[in-house]
Write a protein that binds this DNA or RNA. Structure first.
Lengths: 121, 121
DNA sequence: CCAATACTGAACCACATGGTTCAGTATCAG
DNA sequence: CTGATACTGAACCATGTGGTTCAGTATTGG
């Protein structure tokens, strides 16, 4: 369950920032596929698909093995653990922002109540 | 809590695929900041930072408002809901792959047990 | 053995990205 | 009013991206 080697968040996020590559991952979640299969599925040249596979492989999202002349692709070691963690962390930060905002608003309201009698428009 | 308008996953993932931009988000989680503040913090030209801000703004991750000559940046409407959902979905897919693999392995083991007596090496 | 298949690699293309500098414009402080 | 400040926009640059085609090489089916 441990990430084999820490791949930069940049690399992983960039890898999944492409609709075609997300599609490939989805596809490989169903079953393994050869590069040709994938190229056909996504209406793309073999070479084009190979580049996508390379990006996904670099990100640890896809693993491949070649038997004879056909290279088979399957989901790789990365389950996007660190990436998920980053997003969760961000969401907490994001929520905290509103908590802070609420506190501020409360503070202002209270202030207004105090100042109200001599500062009211 | 609802996403204002559905921003493409591509755009958001690309936005957070950059370490500087993730840093900016982290920074804005603490407190608002002007473009100049951020440019200084990240040792970058004002223009360079403005570009990053623009990317983050397009992704809905940052919101800005200009008062006088200073533009202030704060965290934007997107809490990366859809992006988090996609990753969670992927993780489930990823785990399912192992479930399938386990089933296969079990099947093979059982098969081997049956065939064992006449196929043993 | 020979042709078809499956991939690989190099080269090219248009366009995006991450950064810069330079020349504005608008606002603020004194 | 004038200079400093804060941003904006255009232009440029090197590099990366997403795609292609074309020319290989390696395997396989017949």
């Amino acid at each position: 369950m441990v990430q084999y080697q820490p791949i930069a968040l940049d690399t992983s996020f960039a890898a999944i920032a492409d609709a075609t590559r997300r599609g490939v991952l989805q596809r490989l979640g169903q079953a393994e596929a050869s590069v040709t299969d994938l190229a056909d599925s996504f209406h793309m040249s073999l070479t084009g698909m190979k580049k996508h596979i390379h990006v996904l492989e670099t990100a640890g999202l896809v693993a491949t093995h070649k038997i004879g002349r056909v290279r088979t692709c399957q989901l790789g070691p990365s389950a996007l653990d660190r990436e998920a963690a980053w997003i969760i962390g961000y969401r907490q930060l994001w929520e905290a922002r509103f908590a802070a905002l609420d506190t501020l608003v409360d503070h202002l309201k209270q202030q207004e109540a105090v100042d109200g009698h001599d500062r009211r428009k």
